[in-house]
């Protein structure tokens, strides 16, 4: 409760804080992560997404703030006047290393970006918990033709829940169920997606940072060994289905569309699409010679 509750009224409404010994001035309300340069500035992030208010659940972006008993999540904590922040310290590095180990030893992170480099940087060794360490390993859920849910890869970042619910789609098809290590993303009573209120917008796939949610096309090609990111190109275009004009990014391998995303920075979509834009691409490649 030591926090000042009086808003600052200086001319630019900026706050000045010290980050690793350097004074930085940022607009009031800026998060520490953004004050440090945002995603990719060197502070690792996992549950932080481009288009979702972070849940600060993964705790890998922790930094040290002088006067705070515990570390603080840089993705959510706002900069305050006079704050003294250290983005690297023994405590910070230890917390990051342990979060990487905790997730690495319990979740399949094989499709998560930067994991190998961060494990090396922080000396994380997920193997040290032994072969008997509990994991969230489980079969892939395949209950529709459009996307699969591989919760063995789920780090519970809450982004799919928030994208499905109040932050974007307002469908509320999934929520966290259960508690503790058994907490998991689920429909009511784990009913298959076709029995749920899912509208197949695929906005959950767009925000998933670990590949737990995946186009069925990508999943099938990975299973068949034919998924080759190095042979893929992307083409930005406009969805032709209606008049909104959503930006699409077509991911193409061997002259075939294999999945569709939308640029997170698109002012029209913020990365979101509907079922038609996301999955309705087959007609574009029903070539006469293949019928």
């Amino acid at each position: 409760m030591s926090r000042s509750t009086t808003p600052s009224h200086d001319a630019e409404s900026t706050v000045t804080l010290s980050i690793d010994g350097t004074d930085v001035s940022v607009p009031e309300g800026t998060t520490l992560l953004d004050a440090c340069g945002g995603k990719g500035c060197g502070i690792p992030t996992l549950c932080y997404g481009d288009t979702i208010t972070p849940k600060n659940a993964c705790r890998v972006c922790m930094v040290e703030v002088e006067g705070s008993r515990v570390l603080v999540p840089s993705c959510s904590r706002q900069a305050e006047q006079g704050m003294v922040v250290r983005t690297r310290s023994q405590r910070v590095d230890h917390a990051r290393k342990m979060v990487l180990e905790f997730l690495g030893s319990s979740v399949d992170l094989s499709l998560t970006d930067h994991i190998t480099e961060w494990n090396a940087e922080y000396g994380a060794d997920p193997g040290r918990y032994g072969a008997d360490a509990q994991t969230v390993a489980q079969p892939v859920k395949i209950d529709n033709d459009l996307y699969v849910r591989d919760y063995a890869k789920c780090i519970l970042c809450y982004q799919c829940v928030d994208a499905c619910g109040e932050q974007w789609q307002n469908s509320f098809v999934i929520d966290i169920a259960g508690r503790g290590f058994a907490a998991h993303v689920s429909t009511e009573n784990d009913v298959p997606l076709p029995d749920s209120a899912c509208v197949y917008c695929g906005n959950c796939i767009q925000v998933c940072p670990t590949g737990a949610l995946m186009f069925k096309t990508e999943h099938d090609m990975r299973e068949a060994g034919s998924w080759q990111p190095d042979h893929q190109t992307t083409t930005d275009t406009i969805c032709a289905f209606c008049g909104v004009g959503c930006n699409l990014t077509l991911h193409v391998q061997d002259n075939t569309i294999v999945k569709v995303s939308s640029p997170p920075d698109s002012p029209i979509t913020h990365g979101n699409l509907c079922i038609k834009g996301r999955f309705g691409f087959q007609h574009a490649q029903n070539r006469p010679d293949e019928t």
Binding site: A57, R59, I155, L156, G180, F181
Partner: peptide, 17 residues
């Protein structure tokens, strides 16, 4: 381990480890 809500990684996995 039983009573962790499961929201954050340090507690959700840490209590199991």
């Amino acid at each position: 381990r039983d009573e962790s809500c499961g929201q954050c990684v340090p507690c959700r996995v840490g209590t199991v480890r």
